Computed example of a mutant assay.
Amino acid sequence: MKLKLILLVFLIFVACYKFAGRDVNFDVQPHRFDSCTQPANISELSWAITKPGVTSVAVYVTKVGEPETLWSSGPLIRTLKTGAWVSDGLTFVLRDQNNNFLARRTVDTTRCVGAEFGE
């Protein structure tokens, strides 16, 4: 039990240190893929929210012209991996418990070098 508590305190410290000085921190890695690897891309999302009044968050996914779809919700500090469904133009939107916008990150792809030459 003590080891779990120590580990939890350490993880909170690391998250707070990584995101020190900002009240909304939202990261998607990788956020850029080589188009040669399409469509099986996996990203890791991490966030740490210290904004006053925010008690929980929700992550939505969307593409241009499509409505937002709830993907995950939960605590103010978290890291999650997606499945192999991340593709060019996919946007992750972070909202608070009242559906207020907190942050947005969009995934994009780079050109598949060599593909235009038949490699």
Rank of each mutant, 00 (worst) to 15 (best):
75 P>S: 13
114 G>W: 08
61 V>G: 03
71 W>E: 07
54 V>T: 15
38 Q>S: 14
119 E>Y: 12
64 V>Y: 04
57 V>F: 05
22 R>I: 09
109 T>N: 12
118 G>E: 10
85 W>S: 12
103 A>N: 14
35 S>L: 11
96 D>S: 05
11 L>Y: 08
117 F>P: 00
23 D>H: 11
11 L>T: 10
67 P>G: 07
116 E>Q: 13
17 Y>G: 06
15 A>V: 01
25 N>L: 03
52 P>A: 15
46 S>K: 10
42 I>F: 05
92 F>G: 02
22 R>K: 14
104 R>G: 02
82 T>V: 10
111 R>N: 11
71 W>K: 06
61 V>K: 13
110 T>E: 12
1 M>R: 09
47 W>F: 11
60 Y>P: 07
35 S>C: 06
66 E>C: 00
23 D>K: 07
18 K>T: 11
96 D>H: 03
102 L>Q: 09
27 D>K: 04
42 I>T: 14
33 F>T: 02
106 T>I: 01
86 V>M: 00
85 W>K: 05
46 S>N: 12
101 F>L: 15
95 R>C: 01
61 V>M: 09
22 R>G: 08
89 G>F: 02
11 L>N: 12
14 V>G: 01
34 D>Y: 06
27 D>E: 14
5 L>H: 07
91 T>R: 04
92 F>M: 04
52 P>F: 07
96 D>K: 03
45 L>I: 15
35 S>A: 15
17 Y>Q: 10
82 T>M: 06
12 I>F: 10
6 I>D: 10
48 A>N: 14
34 D>I: 07
8 L>S: 11
35 S>Y: 06
5 L>E: 13
24 V>C: 07
9 V>E: 08
88 D>R: 03
26 F>A: 05
62 T>C: 06
16 C>K: 08
60 Y>S: 10
46 S>A: 11
2 K>W: 02
30 P>N: 09
79 T>N: 08
31 H>C: 01
67 P>H: 07
84 A>H: 07
119 E>C: 08
104 R>E: 15
17 Y>S: 13
113 V>S: 10
89 G>H: 04
52 P>T: 12
64 V>W: 02
55 T>Q: 15
35 S>Q: 10
89 G>K: 03
43 S>G: 11
14 V>P: 00
1 M>Q: 08
17 Y>C: 09
70 L>P: 03
79 T>K: 12
4 K>A: 11
82 T>Y: 05
100 N>G: 02
47 W>N: 04
3 L>D: 10
25 N>M: 03
59 V>I: 15
79 T>A: 13
10 F>Q: 07
97 Q>L: 06
15 A>F: 07
47 W>V: 07
43 S>R: 03
59 V>D: 00
91 T>S: 15
93 V>L: 03
117 F>I: 13
22 R>V: 14
57 V>K: 02
119 E>M: 12
40 A>E: 10
112 C>F: 08
22 R>S: 14
99 N>A: 15
97 Q>F: 05
92 F>V: 04
92 F>K: 01
64 V>D: 14
18 K>S: 09
75 P>V: 09
119 E>S: 06
4 K>F: 09
35 S>V: 04
52 P>S: 15
38 Q>D: 13
58 A>N: 12
